[in-house]
């Protein structure tokens, strides 16, 4: 049989962001991955910066002067925002992936209701909790004296 020519059509990273008609859980999925990568990047940078202490006082002082700039303060707050989202969404995912929030299988009768509908109220609560923690963190970061 002759070989059929095919055109590759895998979405790749574009598939994380979808075509604009996706559900909210898909965007949470993407945000969870992006914040996870962001937190990992922060940890690596944190190790690099704190390792400067081993190079002597002068190197350490220079590093502290650099990361003390306002742009790093904003960046630090973004890390906190990523942490708050990742933690609360992660809690939801743990409960979903252990089958706690998915509901039992049921015969599909139109209009279909899926496990997405079962876990959605908890998802809303977790996102509100994350937003509250982000706001409290922002107040602490920018308005309270250190």
């Amino acid at each position: 049989m002759p070989e059929v020519k095919r055109y590759p059509n895998r979405l790749g990273i574009k598939g994380w962001f979808g075509g604009g008609r996706w559900g909210v859980e898909r965007y949470l999925y993407t945000l969870h991955r992006l914040t996870g990568l962001g937190l990992l990047t922060y940890f690596l940078m944190h190790i690099v910066v704190t390792s400067r202490r081993a190079l002597g006082a002068e190197s350490w002082t220079a590093a502290m002067a650099t990361v003390g700039a306002p742009i790093f303060k904003v960046g630090e707050y973004l890390v906190f925002v990523a942490f708050a989202f990742h933690a609360f969404n992660g809690l939801r995912l743990v409960l979903v992936e252990l089958g706690v929030l998915t509901g039992r299988p049921e015969e599909p009768v139109y209009p279909y209701e899926s496990s997405l509908d079962v876990q959605r109220p908890f998802m809303v609560v977790m996102m509100i909790a994350a937003a509250v923690v982000m706001l409290l963190g922002g107040y602490e970061f920018f308005f309270m004296a250190h």
Binding site: G18, W22, G23, E25, R26, L28, Y29, T30, H32, R33, L93, V96, E97, T102, G103, P105, P108, V109, Y110, Y112, S114, S115, L116
Partner: peptide
């Protein structure tokens, strides 16, 4: 699988693969 849930949202038969 990290529960993007899109499989269940688009399933035309209500199968709910994510569940």
């Amino acid at each position: 699988c990290h529960y993007a849930g899109e499989c269940s949202a688009v399933c035309p038969k209500g199968v709910d693969p994510a569940r």
